[in-house]
């Protein structure tokens, strides 16, 4: 297990190194010149050049990358050009908010999705199964922004039960914090639920047909034990992977949903950075998003091993 984790961490570092080069190059290739943007529309060439020299933009790309990468390794993500502040605290704040959104949404999706999937598999072909399939299809087929708008209209504008946007830190009290989360979470759940429910259903159906489930029944185990102890643990493997990818997705920012609900997470931060051509902020944000994604996947693989003793032992052997 340790060797496996070590290997994965080495790969993770490699992926991030490659990612950092790509991010750096792509942002350099973006239209517009940072120095002239900062200097403003009417600045003279001398002023623009002075800014470029100050930012080190006159140096070769490889040197610029070296400076940037070395800074990141020291934990210095640079300064935002537009906000004129160090990037790290801004990013951390946004990441924290995205984390809250991801954890709450994923917890709901996991519990409800796996539950519905198991229910549909056990009642395969019956009304419950068709209902679950139908409803989850509706969730997946209609775009997320539609649900977002519907929710805003119903709960915010007509019923006036919930705030339609924004964010309240938990220091303001639990209720304001939670009430701001409800609508984005529900939208995310609608978006992600179908896939989890359907995936769980199909792998559960496969597992229910295995010999060990048949043997558990032949031992006279009650159906609840057969389903929960014997089948579910094995059926969850693919679901875990997808949940982890979804986690990385939300953590990396869900631009549309964050925009509609004015939720100040990673998605909105990235959008802001791109619109304002804030190069250091774009670079740092994308890098952190990639890292979050990779870590989520690593967590999934480790969880996978935890659930599946065969993999766990294979790792020990390696």
């Amino acid at each position: 297990m340790l060797a496996y984790t070590l290997t994965r961490l080495v790969y993770l570092a490699l992926v991030l190194a490659v990612m950092s080069v790509l991010v750096f190059l792509v942002t350099q290739a973006m239209p517009g010149d940072v120095a002239s943007m900062i200097a403003g529309q009417f600045a003279s060439k001398e002023v623009v050049d002075a800014i470029a020299v100050k930012l080190g933009l006159d140096q070769p790309l490889i040197v610029q990358y070296g400076h940037w990468a070395a800074g990141i390794l020291r934990g210095d993500l640079g300064r935002s050009l537009v906000l004129e502040q160090p990037i790290a605290p801004i990013l951390l704040e946004a990441l924290g908010r995205s984390l809250v959104l991801a954890v709450v949404a994923l917890a709901v999706v996991a519990v409800v999705g796996i539950g519905l999937g198991v229910l549909a598999a056990v009642r395969r072909g019956k009304l419950t199964d068709q209902l679950v399939s139908g409803v989850s299809y509706l969730g997946i087929a209609v775009p997320d922004f539609f649900w977002a708008i519907v929710l805003v209209l119903v709960f915010g504008s007509y019923l006036k039960l919930l705030p339609t946007g924004g964010y309240a830190p938990i220091t303001d009290g639990f209720l304001p914090w939670a009430s701001h989360l409800v609508l984005p979470v529900v939208t995310l759940v609608l978006m992600l639920l179908a896939r989890i429910a359907r995936l769980t259903r199909s792998s559960m159906i496969d597992v229910l047909q295995t010999n060990y489930v048949k043997f558990a029944r032949a031992k006279g185990m009650p159906e609840s034990v057969v389903i929960l102890r014997h089948a579910l643990k094995n059926a969850l493997l693919p679901t875990i992977t997808v949940l982890a990818i979804d986690f990385g997705l939300i953590l990396g920012g869900v631009v549309v949903i964050e925009t509609i609900f004015s939720y100040p997470g990673m998605g909105r931060l990235l959008l802001f950075a791109i619109q304002r051509h804030d190069l250091p902020l774009i670079q740092a944000t994308i890098l952190i998003v990639s890292a979050a994604y990779c870590l989520a996947n690593l967590t999934a693989d480790l969880l996978y091993a935890f659930v599946n003793p065969k993999i766990r032992h294979g790792m020990r052997a390696s």
Binding site: T210, N211, Y212, K214, F215, A216, A218, R229, H230, K233, N234, V307, N308, P309, K310
Partner: peptide
């Protein structure tokens, strides 16, 4: 049953 390789639950 027939197949011992699949008759035992791999996770228990």
């Amino acid at each position: 049953f027939q197949d011992p390789f699949t008759s035992l639950n791999p996770a228990l």
